[in-house]
Amino acid sequence: MIDNGWDEFEIGAMLRSFDGAVKDIATTLQEDRPYSKNNSFTASVADWRIEKPVFNKDYCIDCQFCWIYCPDISIISRDKKMVGIDYDHCKGCAICVEVCPTNPKSLLMFEEKMDEDEALAGWPEKENKEK
């Protein structure tokens, strides 16, 4: 179905979010869902980004501010812990970086092509906040 153009499929054709039934979607995590090719979850907007957020778990206090304010469901939190970033769906808005309360921040923006280990190695020190 996905290979048909919008003007090629028959009237009444159905595109489904999932291949097969999901018993209780509200309690089924993304990794356990049978996403169909028509669910935007299977698509990527990675090429929208010029900069990407990098996560440094050493400073993270699992406050979940980044999780709630990420518009693009790209902060992966499991069992009340921030686990990482979903780079297929992150659009690089940097909201997560802005709302991260730690010092230094546990999330920072880097050029898209930046190597993650290099980013972590050069992570800034704690900043002395001026009164």
């Binding site: 509200a26 309690t27 089924t28 993304q30 935007s40 693009d72 469901i73 790209s74």
Partner: peptide
């Protein structure tokens, strides 16, 4: 711990 029902991309 919520499982989002709104998707990215």
């Amino acid at each position: 711990t919520s499982a989002d029902r709104f998707e990215g991309a």
